[in-house]
Design a protein around this nucleic acid. Structure first.
Lengths: 228, 228
DNA sequence: GGTATGTTTGTTAACGTTAACTACGTTAAT
DNA sequence: ATTAACGTAGTTAACGTTAACAAACATACC
């Protein structure tokens, strides 16, 4: 068994020979072929876990040999970074949406949870990514990025709860950030339990329970303003 | 970079040549020498992450060669299992304590969080273990054990909240298990943020915030019974 | 007390495997 | 004719693990 780390090699990250690729994946716009590899990588992580995410396996999944992967990503770290970028760009909108619509606070919170969990269901590979801080604890690059993603999500959620509090749509005797943390924490645990259980626990059940529980704890009113 | 997995070998787990060791580590009583290796392994995980936990590194940390490790643990899986056993045996008492003392519910909850986080501070290596479900997702043995630990802790916590509810010492308009889940989730996220931040975030701050937040959310009364 | 015997704990040296990555030649399309 | 895309073949390094052997030490027998 191996759960090992950086094969500290003369890391030619963004070596000059890969100049043309640099722009492509940094700006988060991938070539069609890059997307093929990303899809394959995602599939591997979701079905077999991070440990099986090797260049070999990605190449095999796409139907090419290992060196072909290096035509499109300078190294494995770049591939992982690209995956993380892709994740965050698909998750972030859900967090933002919570802040936007505020007709019915309970409903928008429900939509938020539902939407987020639908997204995860659609892309099961990203569940593991969410908890991967420990996995990439000694990959400085990815670690920083993961930290950034996490605190970014906390910030957006905190903003949302602040505006909810401002409109008296949820309890105000607790800091907005604390509600954001409890929410994020609960989402994570739910995802983790779902992923570990291998389908024994239904994601839909967890979602409904979470909505009810957090709604009750945060005293999210169902459309109070529009009542006479 | 590598985050790989089982080197599916003819797994001689508990091979006959290691018969004398079987009893020693299964019953969770380790020999002095085994404890040396466990301590070293724990130190490595805490300081460098799971990926650096190799037989090589453990041996080097103790000051012996690799094969010497195999005198005390049949294989790496056994070492990891031993670590997990050790973790759970040091964590569980804190969970149990929550149920026992019920003079002052808020106080006992505070004690629970404080005690647990003190334990983690004392053994920082076990923080990563808590979130390692994803890391060991394709190690059937460890995965099962981790699942077991998680659901065990949820069960104990649920029991505690049920008795709190029974004595009307916390809100009853939400299921006990949901409070348990929210609590565990929040603890996990706090631990994760602390561990990732590399000391930038103070554990003490997180602890206090968590106690206040969950106390407020669950309406944990401070010694209501003894008041006239 | 001295000698044989067995156990514990370690070493040296190697095996088989897999990882990330690369030098270089080849093909197909523009 | 250029270039993007891929294959062949190989490198280096690390992994878990094992076999064979040796020093240290306690125990048992004479």
């Amino acid at each position: 068994m191996v759960v090992q780390s950086v094969r500290t090699r003369r890391v030619t990250l963004f070596s000059s020979s890969f100049e043309p690729l640099r722009k492509g994946y940094q700006v988060n716009t991938f070539t069609d072929r890059q997307k093929d590899f990303l899809r394959a990588a995602i599939e591997i992580v979701s079905k077999e876990g991070f440990s099986r995410l090797t260049i070999r396996n990605v190449a095999a999944a796409v139907g090419v040999t290992e060196p072909a992967v290096y035509r499109h990503f300078p190294n494995k770290l770049a591939l992982l970074t690209a995956m993380l970028d892709d994740l965050q760009s698909s998750i972030l909108p859900h967090f933002r949406r919570l802040r936007e619509s505020s007709d019915n606070p309970m409903e928008s919170f429900t939509d938020f949870i539902h939407g987020l969990f639908e997204e995860f269901k659609l892309r099961p590979a990203y569940a593991p990514f969410i908890f991967s801080e420990e996995i990439f604890h000694n990959e400085p690059q990815l670690r920083g990025k993961l930290q950034q993603v996490l605190s970014g999500n906390i910030a957006v959620l905190t903003d949302s709860f602040e505006s909810l509090q401002h409109d008296k749509n949820c309890r105000t005797d607790i800091e907005a950030q604390q509600m954001a943390l409890v929410t994020l924490a609960s989402i994570r645990l739910a995802m983790s339990r779902w992923h570990i259980s291998d389908g024994r626990i239904r994601l839909k059940d967890l979602t409904e329970q979470l909505i009810v529980s957090l709604g009750t704890l945060f005293e999210l009113k169902t459309d109070e303003k529009s009542s006479p």
